[in-house]
Amino acid sequence: MFMQHFINALGLGSLYGLIAIGYTMVYGILRLINFAHGDIFMLGAYFVFFATIQYKLPWALGVFIAVMGAILSGLLVDLIAYKPLRDAPRISALISAIGVSFFIENASMVAFTARPQAVIQPKQLVEAFSVGDIRLVPLNIIVPAISFVLVGMLLWMIYRTKRGLAMRSISHDIETTRLMGVSVNRIIALTFAIGSGLAAVAGIMWALRYPKVEPLMGFTPGFKAFIAAVFGGVGSVPGAMLGGLALGFIEIMSVAFFPTLSGYKDAFAFVLLVIILLVKPTGLMGEKSEDKI
């Protein structure tokens, strides 16, 4: 029984982690909470839903379209709503982000209707098999596996390639990086593209796990993933994954062992957020930053 919960928590946690990476990368570079990130996650899920279920395309093509669509949406959001505000006070960009998030949610409600729609899971993914006395669903193994592979690739990119170096450099000092001849805007766009792509992957797996899509499905996972990013230390990719996993375990285990608390499930993340912000605002793996006078 414990193993069952463990695998559940691993799946949920790695999904939170994947979304959290998008938050943490954008925050690390622009010091902006990309409120629309949860909605990009939702768009990814919808794109795959339309491609595979409405238009009956094969899953591989559907996933490709969904990821590309989400990347495009992420880049558009940056171009329209954030780029004009690079030199504005940070709070202005944050308000713009909230506006964009509301725009995507409501526009999706207009375009896709507010009604949740069922996602038909491919048979191979949900046929359970047994290992010893544990019943496993392939989906629950695939979700964390894909997540960890993607995070591994991302870490390689950040720490072993030139673009990754540029990214880390921008997060330290954007002006100096620009003077060193790095085209900052392109690296920022790349960051948004990577974050949105990962969010789309998470959205697709989320849609398969809880087989439905709806326009507001991004808000709660998005917010929790943000909390995971804060917990892990904003700006740190391994931290985001760690935070996501921690959050997944807290949620699944507390409901598993204290079923009476299930109504309060969504509140745990917020309580965790408040505690972290009070005890260690830099998170588990975050860098200490001091306000300059």
């Binding site: 308000i95 713009s96 509301f102 526009a107 409600m109």
Partner: peptide
């Protein structure tokens, strides 16, 4: 939802 679409554009 159309109302809020217009409003979010306005805010941005």
């Amino acid at each position: 939802g159309m109302r809020m679409v217009i409003f979010s554009i306005l805010l941005v």
